[in-house]
Amino acid sequence: MRWCEYPGYLTGSEVFQNYGCRMFSGLWITFELVAISVTLGFALAIGLAIARLYGPRWAQSVINGYTTFFRGTPLLCQLFLVYYGLGQFRLFWQDVGLWWFFREPFYCAVFTFTINTAAYQAEILRGAIQSIPRGQFEGALALGLHRWASLRHVIIPQAMILGLRPLGNELIVMIKASAVASLVTLFDLMGATRLAFARSFDLSIYLYAALIYLVLVEIIRRVWDRLELRLTRHMALR
């Protein structure tokens, strides 16, 4: 018996045992989807948040429009627009040499999730940066620090502490939201579960899938607690 069949064996669920391996390989795809898109999204979001706050006026309005659109429309809708919508312009993508990217459902999902989560994370970071008192920035400038240096060494480290909790929430939301990837033929955890259900008609498989998501989210919650303790250790009461 392979390791991935054990949880089903131990819980006495035949369907979970039969489809355990598929579900755990689905879990890995879910993990890849979320890890890549949240990391790339975070890198994008830092740039977006800074440009949104300190950039030229036109950049501010463009970014404002971007975040409004991606925070205001359903993720599933965005995914379908990218997957089926952009997918219709095959000849164009082939001309610009990007068809290999938009052909694969995995890349389409990563792309959609990245631009979606970047919008949310940019707003989180903007709020966090804005809530650092203005005096911090002025003080840093008065000490002769360059604008970028003040941002990097004074403002952003403090803002990150404020943004950590909401960023953790965003990560958890993305894990759950990534289940929509199963609707564009990806066998992520949800996709594998749907397949198992379709073959067995045994509803209890959804319960096991829910438990796996729950465990994943709980692990992240605990890691985040540790992370916050560590980042705020200079502020802790002695």
């Binding site: 089926y84 997918g87 219709q88 609707l183 033929t185 379709a198």
Partner: peptide, 30 residues
């Protein structure tokens, strides 16, 4: 879908919620 799963393991089977979506992806060239 079961047929693909049983006999076409070395292909790349893609399963869609409806037939319409599979048709659309064939037109799109995926």
């Amino acid at each position: 879908a079961n047929f693909l799963e049983k006999f076409y393991k070395d292909s790349n089977p893609r399963l869609y919620p409806t037939q319409e979506e599979a048709n659309l992806d064939l037109i799109n060239g995926r």
